[in-house]
């Protein structure tokens, strides 16, 4: 069974949704970002998306762009992700890499899969790679037993939902709104509808919801209909505002409380 699916099942057994945090490696520097990732896990996150800085992150809003920009300018790249993956695993969290496709292709798809598996990573989330273009990654992740998380969106047709779910392992990432990453004041109504539509084809595959969740109340709301809650920009905001690992730890605690408040989905 996949590392991610196992951890999400364990959360469900506790009567709650899983909490998945996102932080990019390299902001404000590699070591500090890894400390923050460990703090996110210690504060209550189940899994951590280790973000690979990328020069052209088309799906990111201004908050994540700002952090990535600093990391890219400092020369941080995919190779710096492996120590982060090891540190998250050592802290008891499930590490999953979040990367735009070109850094992985440049590193070498097979080499990436081998190195990630050896470091204890669960797999990868690829926001600009659709299953239709993922032949090499599907083969490499099958060979190494890694999870591969593809995205579905409110605009996905039923046929694409089915195909994307079929290609995913670990969980499927439901992008809750049409738009880029960023904190939002309300959870979009599209999120619940998308999860319900995905649920009809997902079988046992967990569905986690991302884009726009930033506080405990929103986490509780999303936990009411999803298997996992993904929070990114709110964590990065803690770092940009200089609250560092302690801010991240406190945010994890608030969000972890949120996912417990909702109670498990029927």
């Amino acid at each position: 069974m996949s590392l991610l699916a196992e951890r999400i099942a364990a959360a469900r057994a506790e009567g709650r949704a899983a909490l998945i945090a996102y932080l990019p490696v390299g902001y404000p520097d590699v070591d500090t970002s890894i400390e923050a990732m460990v703090a996110a896990i210690e504060g209550g996150a189940d899994a951590l998306e280790v973000g690979v800085p990328y020069s052209d992150p088309g799906m990111e809003g201004p908050v994540i762009q700002e952090a990535m920009d600093v990391a890219v300018r400092a020369g941080v790249g995919l190779r710096h992700v492996l120590p982060a993956v090891r540190a998250v695993a050592a802290a008891g969290g499930v590490p999953v890499v979040m990367s735009y496709w070109n850094p992985i292709e440049r590193y070498g798809v097979d080499r990436f899969a081998d190195d990630l598996a050896a470091a204890g990573g669960a797999g990868a989330i690829t926001p600009d790679l659709i299953p239709d273009e993922a032949g090499a990654w599907i083969a490499a992740s099958d060979r190494t037993g890694l999870d591969r998380v593809f995205l579905v969106a409110p605009s996905s047709t039923d046929a694409r939902l089915a195909a994307t779910v079929a290609a995913s392992r670990g969980f499927v990432y439901a992008a809750s709104t049409m738009g880029v990453t960023g904190t939002r004041t309300t959870v979009s109504t599209a999120a619940g509808e998308l999860v319900a539509r995905t649920r009809t084809v997902a079988g046992d595959l967990p569905i986690c919801v991302g884009l726009g969740v930033s506080n405990g109340d929103q986490a509780a709301e999303v936990a009411g209909f999803a298997d996992g809650v993904i929070v990114g920009s709110a964590y990065v905001r803690e770092m940009l505002d200089g609250r560092g690992a302690e801010g991240v730890r406190a945010l994890s605690a608030e969000l972890a409380d949120g996912v417990r408040r909702a109670g498990v989905r029927a």
């Binding site: 969106a153 605009s155 996905s156 694409r160």
Partner: peptide
Amino acid sequence: ATGHFGVFGGRFVPEALIAA
């Protein structure tokens, strides 16, 4: 039919844009 010129081209975009 899927926009490939040999190994080049294709679609490397977020799923949200595929419908458009």
